[in-house]
Nucleic acid binder design. Structure first.
Lengths: 245, 245
DNA sequence: AGCCCTGTTGACACCCTGTCAATAGCACTT
DNA sequence: AAGTGCTATTGACAGGGTGTCAACAGGGCT
């Protein structure tokens, strides 16, 4: 998310860029005013714009970013942004996708051993992911989406669902029961919440968070999943007729 | 982009506005075209606009609601919206406050009886709140805020903290230990996640959600809180050095 | 060199937000 | 009842941001 392309840092003065010879693919604000119109491969240009957008959207909220800002950062004109991404929202979606969706890569862990060991393994897997890029992770998965945009929702939901399936897999359960999936998605929220408390405010450490997540998941496995089907019908909450707050 | 100002969409039909005798305080779209300029007490007008905004913002995302929509729904002009709330975001903040901030009023419930009963009472209290305005509640507390708006963040965080304190109170625990508060805030995320699954997707019903929340909270009370202090230090997650997303 | 494909631009039209002086309800006085 | 004053409410205006499109020009090819 953050590109950490800390400004000073050899961007303009020292090495590179001898004189008036800007790297055409220079991503960020290398755009003194100097660089004339340079023609790039569509793929390269797309990537470059996307990288800049990644940085910008990480810095301030969606509404306070204008396509002009995006364009300037990439050293192009607004028109080009729209040419490649259709709309500002389109570009934003690409950014969210890039950040939120954890690759489904390492799926091959054999779920073996007693349940408690599996649960602990699953929790540790999750905490490791968070610990790798704590702040970025929190920013990406928190309430940072654009206001209720259905597509953003969808992406974030997909991310949660992947995590939920992963946990189910670690538990050694088939991941195709929609109710169990739903249940685990809720649990993933607990994980996200706990991680937030861990990373942002410092009152809980990894130890405490781990404890919380392990015991909760154990309770779910022990006391909830087995009786899930015995419970009542699965109606959604009634349509709301608001009265007053 | 999308004009979304499509279809009349239940905006104008239903209740209210029988025939040219509009209740001055009629909340929604009682605005045939009929109602002439009516003068109301500032308080009343504010309330009325707020109620309408509550509904509208619950229906579609912030960015797709225009001040014109808000004004029309309340049967006034845009200017008045700004007169009372300054800005569209200002009105939105009031809405979020109204929905998310559970009144700290009914604090007097005696936390008595066995722990399981208390836990169930607390969970039911929470579910009742959600059930009162399900969709609006989900919209307001989910990732539906204005993208990363600090003020929205603050309100939501405050709301979570209130809920956490409330739960601690129901459990019969003092609500001043920051670590327990933090723990319970994480639990509140589970509650919100579960409520989302309940309201939005229909795979889980209130029964299942209740089960999940009760058992999880029981596990927390039984297995986590007692040993919270025995666990390691409460360092925040290490500062992150991002490599790549 | 000259041509052509296409990446890139600049300007245009539209919508939306926020401001402000002007208008007109409505309660109170005479 | 009519008049008067306070102020709730309006309508028009300015500024800014998004998305569209025909035209321009970079650079590889003949």
């Amino acid at each position: 998310m953050f590109d950490h392309r800390t400004k000073g840092e050899g961007m303009d003065d020292g090495r590179g860029a001898r004189l008036a010879e800007p790297d055409p693919t220079a991503p960020l604000a290398a755009v003194g005013q100097t660089s004339a119109r340079v023609r790039l491969e569509p793929d390269v240009r797309r990537q470059q714009i996307l990288r800049c957008a990644l940085q910008i959207f990480g810095e301030r909220p969606y509404a306070e970013v204008s396509t002009q800002d995006l364009a300037s950062a990439a050293g192009v004109t607004r028109g080009l942004i729209h040419h490649y991404f259709g709309t500002k929202r389109g570009l934003y979606l690409e950014v969210v996708r890039a950040i939120a969706l954890i690759p489904e890569d390492d799926v091959a862990d054999a779920p073996s051993g007693p349940m408690r060991a599996r649960v602990e393994a699953g929790v540790d897997w999750f905490l490791d992911i968070v610990a790798r890029h704590p702040r970025t992770w929190v920013a990406a998965t928190g309430a940072e989406g654009v206001a209720g945009d259905p597509e953003v929702e969808r992406i974030l939901a997909e991310a949660d669902d992947r995590a939920a399936r992963r946990v189910l897999q670690v538990l050694g359960r088939p991941a195709d029961d929609p109710r169990e999936r739903s249940l685990l998605r809720a649990y993933v929220q607990l994980g996200k919440g706990a991680a937030r408390e861990w990373v942002r405010d410092g009152d809980l450490g990894r130890t405490q968070v781990r404890l919380l997540l392990v015991e909760s998941l154990m309770a779910i496995v022990r006391d909830v999943l087995p009786v899930l089907d015995d419970a009542g019908p699965h109606r959604a909450a009634g349509e709301d007729e608001e009265k007053n707050p």
